[in-house]
Simulated scan of single mutants.
Amino acid sequence: MEKQPCVYILASGLNGTLYVGVTSNLIGRVYQHRQNLIVGFTQRYGVHDLVWYEVHEQMESAILREKQLKNWSRVAKKRLIELRNPLWQDLWPDLA
């Protein structure tokens, strides 16, 4: 897959713990999270479900968006997820 900047949100389940990240390889990065290949927050809290993502043209805009989302309240992040994914379904099967 060619590099494509993306911002993504992972969750531990419906209304669960959230993680906001940025990557240039969404499939590869989410795979790493799901397989617990990345030691840290997502591994510790079982945050593996891809519930939202946004594709960007440039990595700079993706990084700015990630920083913006990280500063949002949990309620605002939930609203963002539920606009496109009201049931918090794991989007991984459609992506992979």
Rank of each mutant, 00 (worst) to 15 (best):
Y8S: 06
R65I: 07
V30C: 10
I63S: 12
S24A: 11
S73Q: 05
C6D: 14
G16I: 05
Y45G: 09
V7I: 09
W92A: 09
L18K: 01
Q89N: 15
W92Y: 09
F41M: 04
Q35W: 14
W72I: 01
M1H: 09
R34L: 10
G28Y: 03
G46P: 10
L80Q: 02
E82Y: 09
W72D: 00
L83R: 15
I81C: 03
N71R: 09
Q35F: 14
S73E: 00
Q68G: 08
H33Y: 08
C6A: 08
P5C: 05
W92C: 04
R44K: 11
E54P: 00
Q68D: 11
L26K: 01
T23H: 02
S12V: 00
N25T: 07
N25G: 12
C6S: 14
N85I: 09
I9P: 00
T17S: 13
N85E: 07
M59S: 13
L95F: 03
Y19S: 05
Q4R: 11
L83H: 15
L37F: 05
L95P: 02
V39A: 13
L14S: 13
E60W: 13
L14A: 14
Q32G: 13
R84G: 15
E54M: 12
E82L: 12
R29F: 01
R44M: 11
H33W: 02
L87I: 05
T42H: 04
A96P: 07
R34C: 06
L80F: 03
L87F: 14
Q89F: 04
R34P: 08
V20P: 01
L83Q: 15
A11I: 06
